[in-house]
Each structure stands twice: as structure tokens, then as C-alpha cells.
């Protein structure tokens, strides 16, 4: 069913990473991505891998959850890796058969590509598993606040993002209700050709739109009644605070990036 989709897949726990400031976590994720893409040989890749494994262990989120988030992309990873393996040219031919050549460069490219995608997913999963969606939007708002200088309405954007996230479960519930109602009137969503199936969705989409507009206008009234003006004067109940541990983590990551660059130069790049 639709309700099986997890959005804002927060996993409740009391770990070190859960307690980090959301802004720090976003910065750390960006640094993580940089780290993952900077690796050019196996030693620097090993360092990155250690960082990822440490973060996963520190997050107190069961490894099972990470595997679950990796599952849907495994076919893509395998597909691109295999394609890269055979289409990357190079001098060191390892294997050649009936016009298909396999070079060591090809194998390395494939390994690095697969490793990067997998690590990328894990790194971003750490962020979403350990941070409540509303904290994430708050953090994005704070991080983007310099854009206010250029008259970008950062706060309104953040509010919109928060509201959008807030209403996803509500809309899913609404879709289920409408689907049940139309099924009770004999609507058939499971059979027929593509065009028929697309047409079958109309009785769900239209009521969904109507109720979304109704909800939106109700919400706007409710917000106005509580004096929301969209002004920059709003304060927060949960104040975000960068602590020493947040800075320590960021410094560790920057050091690792330096380490990776150093290792790349010391041992030579394989890709």
C-alpha cells in the first residue's frame, strides 16, 4: 500500500549523532560527499569507508535500516558498474574475448563508481535517519539565511517546506479514503490497459485537488488568526545551538578531507 512509503524516515534514538545540531549535520553531509568524491585510490577509499562505518555505528540506527535504504538502488549500481567496466578504455588489458576487452582501469572505475553511490546513499541516510524533518528545514533556513541580503524570502521557503512535509501523511491518508470510496462505487484500478488505468485515477485526483485547496485555505485562515505575517520576526521554541562537539566533528571531517587528498598524492591515483 501507499502507506508503506517512508518519508522523512526519522529513526527515533538517543545517539551522539541524533544530538548533533541539524546545521552541523547538513554541513557534515556535504563534507562527506566531498570526501567520497575525492577518493582516488584504495587507501583513501579505505579511510572514507572507516569514516562511514564509524558514523553508522555512532548513529544507533540498526544496520538493517541502511540496507533497506540501499535495496532499491542495487540494480542501478550493478548496471552502471558493469557498463563502466566494459566501456572504460585503458592500456592494461586483463581479459579479452571475442572483441570484449576488460582493462584494469575499467575494473577500478566500476569499483569506485559502485562504492561512491553506495556510500553516498548511506551518508545521506545517516542525515535523514537521525534528524526530524522539521529540524532539517529549520537548519536549511538558517544555513540559507545569508541569502536574505539578496532579498530572497528564505523564511517563507522554509515555512513552505515544513508545511509540505507536514501534509504528506495527511494526503496519503486522504488518498486512501478517496480510493476506498471510489472502489466502493466499483472503480477498478487494477486492470485494463495503460490508458484506462490513467483514466481510472481521475476520480481520485480531482477530489484530492479539491480537498487540498480547501485545506490550504483553511490553514491560511488559521495561520492568519494566529497572527502569522510571514515576517522575519518569528522566534523558535527549539533554539538551535552549535556546541563544541559540532565543531569538533566538522574539524575531524575537514582533517579527513585533507588526509584523503594527501593519501591521493602519496600513493598515486588509480582512477
Amino acid at each position: 500500500m501507499i502507506s508503506d512509503i517512508t518519508i522523512g524516515q526519522y529513526y527515533k534514538a538517543e545517539s551522539f549523532i541524533h544530538k548533533l545540531d541539524a546545521r552541523a549535520k547538513i554541513i557534515l553531509t556535504v563534507l562527506f560527499i566531498a570526501l567520497i568524491f575525492l577518493c582516488k585510490n584504495f587507501i583513501s577509499l579505505a579511510l572514507t569507508l572507516v569514516m562511514v562505518i564509524l558514523s553508522v555505528l555512532l548513529s544507533s540506527v540498526p544496520v538493517k535500516m541502511y540496507i533497506k535504504s540501499l535495496k532499491p538502488i542495487i540494480p542501478i549500481v550493478l548496471f552502471t558498474a558493469v557498463l563502466n567496466m566494459f566501456y572504460t578504455g585503458g592500456e592494461n588489458v586483463v581479459f579479452s574475448f571475442k572483441g570484449i576487452t576488460l582493462t584494469s582501469e575499467g575494473i577500478f572505475t566500476a569499483i569506485f563508481l559502485a562504492a561512491r553511490i553506495v556510500l553516498l546513499i548511506i551518508a545521506s541516510s545517516i542525515l535523514t535517519y537521525t534528524t526530524v524533518p522539521t529540524m532539517l528545514t529549520d537548519a536549511i533556513e538558517k544555513l540559507l539565511s545569508p541569502l536574505k541580503l539578496f532579498k530572497v524570502p528564505v523564511q517563507s521557503w522554509a515555512m513552505m517546506m515544513t508545511l509540505a512535509l507536514r501534509f504528506i501523511p495527511t494526503l496519503i491518508e486522504e488518498i486512501e479514503k478517496i480510493t476506498n470510496a471510489q472502489k466502493s462505487r466499483g472503480a477498478d484500478f487494477e486492470s485494463g490497459r495503460l490508458l484506462q488505468r490513467i483514466k481510472a485515477v481521475i476520480p481520485i485526483i480531482i477530489p484530492l485537488f479539491v480537498s487540498s485547496f480547501r485545506r490550504a485555505s483553511d490553514l491560511a485562515y488559521a495561520m492568519s488568526c494566529r497572527c502569522y505575517t510571514g515576517a522575519d520576526t518569528r522566534t523558535r521554541m527549539k533554539q538551535m545551538k552549535m556546541r563544541i562537539r559540532d565543531f569538533v566533528c566538522i574539524i575531524i571531517f575537514i582533517t579527513s578531507i585533507a588526509g584523503v587528498i594527501l593519501l591521493n598524492n602519496l600513493f598515486g591515483a588509480v582512477i
Binding site: 479514503k177 478517496i178 476506498n180 470510496a181 471510489q182 466502493s184 462505487r185 481521475i202 476520480p203 480531482i206 477530489p207 479539491v210 480537498s211
Partner: peptide, 13 residues
């Protein structure tokens, strides 16, 4: 067995 759910007006389309 026809079911008419709560607030059925939201199913009109």
C-alpha cells in the same frame, strides 16, 4: 454491498 463513507461529499469528482 454499497458503502457510503464519512463525509462522502469529498468523493465527488
Amino acid at each position: 454491498v454499497g458503502i457510503c463513507f464519512q463525509y462522502p461529499e469529498y468523493q465527488l469528482f
